[in-house]
Amino acid sequence: MDFKVSPLTKIISLSGFLALGFLLVILSCALFHNYYPLFDILVFLLAPLPNALFSKSSTDSANFMSDTVSNTQDTGSFLTGVFVTSGLALPLVFYHCQLIGSLSCIMSTLGGLIIYSSIVVFSWFFHSSWEQEEDTLFG
């Protein structure tokens, strides 16, 4: 059975998933009257940017290492990893310093993971649909 999901259904479901992540982080702030977990949103929103910026670099065919990932792509992956790790560790550091409670830490971490994963899935969905359109357009 070939089950096709329309692109609009995917976009709406991913938007709902993203809204759930924002809701969790905002509730972790508002319920406990402490707005430190909002920094987590900023970190997870910045996390995909280095990968997106550095993945567009072109590799030179004259380069002897042309079959490997270029240094700029490695740098983008490293910076993305730093942001994701910081986003996961930030609520734990706030909890350790007793700036937020344990439930706020859990909600903020879970909300940040949902935000980052929905951004990654969203960009993967559009990247794969753009490649398919380019193939069908000129193929």
Rank of each mutant, 00 (worst) to 15 (best):
M1C: 12
D2C: 09
K4F: 13
V5Q: 01
T9E: 00
I12N: 00
G16P: 04
F17A: 09
F17K: 01
F22C: 11
F22N: 04
S28F: 00
C29Y: 01
A30L: 10
H33F: 09
H33N: 15
P37S: 02
L38V: 07
F44E: 01
A47D: 03
P50R: 02
P50L: 02
P50G: 02
A52F: 07
L53W: 07
L53R: 10
F54D: 02
S58I: 04
A62M: 10
F64P: 15
F64T: 12
M65V: 12
M65A: 13
S66L: 01
S66I: 07
S70P: 14
N71Q: 14
Q73D: 13
D74H: 12
D74C: 14
T75N: 10
F78K: 14
T80E: 10
G81H: 05
V84M: 10
T85W: 12
V93D: 03
Y95E: 03
Y95Q: 04
Y95R: 07
C97M: 09
Q98F: 05
L99R: 08
I100C: 02
G101K: 00
S102G: 08
C105P: 10
I106M: 05
L110H: 06
G111M: 01
G112P: 07
L113C: 15
L113G: 15
L113H: 04
Y116R: 04
V120H: 03
V120T: 07
V120F: 09
S123Q: 13
W124V: 12
F126G: 02
W130R: 13
E131V: 15
T136Q: 13
